[in-house]
Design a protein around this nucleic acid. Sequence first.
DNA 1: TATTGTTATACTCTATAACTATA
DNA 2: TATAGTTATAGAGTATAACAATA
Lengths: 143, 143
Amino acid sequence: MSNSAVKSRAFEGWELLLDLVLLLERSRLPAIAAEVGLPEAQCHTLRLLDPDHETPMRRLVECLSCDASNVTGIVDRLEARGLIERRVATADRRVKVIALTDAGRATRRRLLERLGEPPEPIARLSAADRKTLCAILRRALRR
Amino acid sequence: MSNSAVKSRAFEGWELLLDLVLLLERSRLPAIAAEVGLPEAQCHTLRLLDPDHETPMRRLVECLSCDASNVTGIVDRLEARGLIERRVATADRRVKVIALTDAGRATRRRLLERLGEPPEPIARLSAADRKTLCAILRRALRR
DNA sequence: TATTGTTATACTCTATAACTATA
DNA sequence: TATAGTTATAGAGTATAACAATA
């Protein structure tokens, strides 16, 4: 399947993690997005939104690490689906803030539930392995 | 940055791995693709091709887990860049096989080199942690 | 009839550049 | 002048459906 012909001099185990990442990126994430009924970029954006507070569009631009013009389009489509609302910020009238609608909060919840389910390769690890993996990743990501 | 509000009942550490995956998917992989000078899907395809043997298009369809019509387009663009060649298989004349050109092999090599470099979060792990991580991932992916 | 790959079409995501409105 | 967001445009990836060539 994944003919991981990557040979890392620096760390031969990274090859395995890369395989896992690519597997998730190309099969699991698209599948979950399809289930939820939204394209991946819109899922990503929905995930970033705070269900309890308004989010300035500028923050989405940073978190999605893409051009501002893309965010305009993504927000347009999420709004057209009735999942979010765009409002003008009272403080600085240049700024627009995004608020989830009730439908948006529900969809977001479904999305997070599905994302939260570990994929097959991870789910089949022993409790001990999962605990160790968790500890190592926490060190890697400094949490 | 990544407001990982995912709460997995099944395995709280999966949340961390998901953060890592999304981080890589949305910043590192696009950056490497830009360096190599190809869109991500074309990089993916280049990675899948065997430098020493022809690859039937059908195999690419399976490995990329997308519709056959997409592969036609991706292969078109890789061919237009002179990185691959499309040939009719001698055995079954319906089948077309893909062969890397010299330029394609060189680009693929550069791509694999960059992909092989562990990203910051992984690179800063201790040798012991990396070894353990490697062992766990091997069990997860059954290698 | 079934399979391999292509074409036509439509939607989405992406970046760049030029623009509007605020500050 | 600078910043937040929009529009226009163009290239790329994605799926569906209809199609040609071959088996």
